[in-house]
Every structure is written in C-alpha cells, then in structure tokens.
C-alpha cells in the first residue's frame, strides 16, 4: 500500500482559518491597547499639569491672607495681581498665543493641543450673613480643554473671607 505523507485539505483549511481568526483577535487587542496607552498618557499629563497649577496657587491662598486682587496694570495678557498679607504679591496671567500660564515665578506651558477656556475671576458678597462669619467668596477659574476629552483640566480656586474684617479687596477685578 502507498505511504501517505502530508495533511488532508480539510485539516489545512481548518488550521489556516483558526490561525487567521486568532491573529485577527490578537491584532484587534493590540490596536485597542495601543489606543488606551496613548490616550491615558495624554490624560495623565493633563491631570498632572492641573494638579501642579492648582497646588501652586492654592498653597498661597491657604497659607496667607489675601490683601487685595486687582487687574494687572502693565500686562496685555489676561492677568490679575494678587497681594497677600505678610506674603508675596504675585501675578496670575495666561498667554493664549504661547499657551503659557504664569503665577509669580512659576511658568508652565500647557500640554500640546490643549487650550485655555474663558477664565473667570469674581468676588461675590452674600447679604444677610452675620458679621462673625465669612460672607464673601472669591472664585478664580481657568478652564483648560483638550479636543478629545469633555473634561475640564483647569483650575478652580475658591477663597472665603469676611468683608467686614478684610475690606481692602477691590471686587472689580476680572480677566
């Protein structure tokens, strides 16, 4: 009888089909993982930048008493100047052309492709609050957006004070 070497056609077809199916799944997994890696990398950078900026500014608002906030007189960029009692005087400004945020000596460039939204700097005094409590809230909000994410990667600084005790803060500042 003849000696048979090799494989049957059916075997080969099934083997090749199975191999192609597995390779297809593996490639899909690879693409998904690569997408997650890149996307998470960018998000990580944005969140770290947010934490850094937030901490730099909040640190001063926590450690010192705000004496006054005014619009910067000599800056063309969106800028406010914050004076702290027994502390430094620092300018907070954003440069949309260079995508840079400056706070005192701290200068940081935004992550590529991210951009500033419309900043808010307001002071709101609530009428009717007893004099012994804080009655005024200062809010400094600088949104930072990135095209592929809906989230805001910016900062939101809140400072509370009693306007009957600290009456030096001019509430007409804005970006």
């Amino acid at each position: 009888m003849k000696k048979r070497n090799g494989f049957t056609t059916i075997e080969l077809i099934i083997t090749i089909t199975l191999t192609l199916v597995i390779m297809g799944f593996l490639l899909e997994i690879l693409f998904i993982l690569k997408e997650i890696y890149v996307s998470n990398g960018i998000r990580t950078e944005l969140l770290i930048k947010q934490a850094l900026i937030s901490h730099k500014i909040n640190q001063d608002f926590t450690n010192y008493e705000v004496e006054n906030i005014i619009n910067c007189l000599d800056e063309e960029d969106e800028c406010i100047e914050i004076s702290f009692k027994d502390g430094p005087t620092k300018k907070l400004s954003i440069d949309r052309n260079e995508n840079i945020l400056k706070y005192g000596d701290f200068v940081t460039k935004l992550v590529d492709n991210s951009k500033f939204g419309e900043p808010i700097a307001t002071s709101e005094t609530i009428i009717g609050v007893p004099h012994v409590f804080n009655d005024t809230i200062i809010q400094i909000k600088i949104p930072i957006t990135y095209p592929t994410y809906d989230e805001d990667f910016g900062i939101n600084i809140i400072y509370q004070y009693n306007s009957t005790i600290i009456s030096t803060i001019d509430d007409n500042f804005s970006f």
Partner: peptide, 18 residues
Amino acid sequence: FKYNTANGLYAVNNIKNF
C-alpha cells in the same frame, strides 16, 4: 486620578473652613 485630586482636596478644605 478620580479620588482626592488636588482640586478636590482644596475644595473639600473650603467646605471644612465653612
């Protein structure tokens, strides 16, 4: 990046101050 973010902690600190 969801729990106890820098923004979040300072915000909770504001609630604490209040």
